[in-house]
């Protein structure tokens, strides 16, 4: 029991210490600058957050941004999974390689500005975030697929195991730990990109436009409150992926 507690305590103490330091620095800066417009106090920020939480507009914006994040993330993950799987074929991989490199190296802002011209404000953030998260997940999934134990693949071929069974019982479980880790780090990025694109695309009823309006009205505390909401949203989504990983990867 004592040993277990000793093992668990650092997992609780260190993250709390890190958050505590950030909050303390925030409080020190706010007190030193003493201008709500530049650095709002913790109290006023949480007051604003409290106000936001009681209004329907907050949930509408949160819901819309969450839906865009989910749509972009899931299409990105699915496309990355399928294309990384077919990339096990060397010819396909060589064909896709320049496309992935181009998608990866195009500046985020160019993509956002171009899609704002081409697409509706409600859909462009989904596409922009897809273009950013897809190559990251593709690379992660592909390296996981390439790392699948060749001996097990050979064994399954000798025993004449069908591709469908190999896919679901050998390949996917083998890549699952690395793939979930990759998805966990991509989801936070997707939230960030969706919000950034919402700001530029002026997407109505979104967290991005709410932040933009708060900035326009010099409501710095409200802007920070929305930022806190975005951080919590990212954290919850990361936790959700971690929980799915735990449920799926039971053998480790």
């Amino acid at each position: 029991m004592k040993l277990k507690l000793k093992k668990i305590l650092p997992d609780i103490i260190y993250p709390f210490a890190a958050v505590g330091i950030i909050v303390a620095l925030w409080a020190i800066f706010a007190a030193a600058i003493d201008m709500e417009l530049i650095v709002p106090s913790i109290g006023s920020t949480f007051d604003k957050l409290g106000n936001l939480l009681t209004g329907a507009d907050f949930y509408r914006a949160l819901g819309n941004t969450l839906l865009r994040t989910a749509a972009s993330f899931l299409t990105g993950a699915l496309a990355a999974l399928l294309l990384s799987l077919v990339s096990l074929n060397d010819s396909v991989r060589k064909f896709l390689s320049p496309v992935i490199k181009i998608v990866r190296s195009v500046p985020t802002m160019s993509v956002i500005l171009l899609t704002v011209i081409w697409m509706k404000p409600a859909t462009s953030p989904i596409f922009v975030a897809f273009l950013i998260n897809f190559p990251i997940m593709y690379s992660g999934f592909y390296s996981a697929f390439s790392g699948v134990d060749k001996d097990l693949v050979a064994m399954s071929k000798v025993y004449g195991v069908k591709f469908k069974n190999r896919l679901f019982e050998l390949y996917l479980p083998a890549i699952a730990p690395a793939a979930f880790d990759c998805m966990q780090s991509s989801i936070g990025l997707t939230v960030k990109i969706v919000i950034s694109a919402e700001v530029i695309a002026q997407t109505r009823y979104s967290m991005g436009i709410a932040m933009q309006m708060a900035r326009g009205y010099l409501e710095t505390a409200e802007l920070l409150a929305w930022t806190l909401a975005a951080v919590v949203l990212s954290y919850i989504l990361e936790l959700l992926i971690f929980a799915i990983k735990k449920a799926f990867v039971r053998w480790k």
Binding site: M155, Y159, P173, A174, V249
Partner: peptide, 28 residues
């Protein structure tokens, strides 16, 4: 049809003993 007993066991780490055997039998 060929069975192969390898030097290293070549068992799928994500499947139980039962499921490892079932894995090669589903097709037959």
């Amino acid at each position: 049809k060929i069975s192969y007993i390898f030097q290293n066991k070549r068992l799928l780490p994500n499947l139980t003993v039962y499921k490892n055997i079932e894995f090669v039998l589903k097709n037959v």
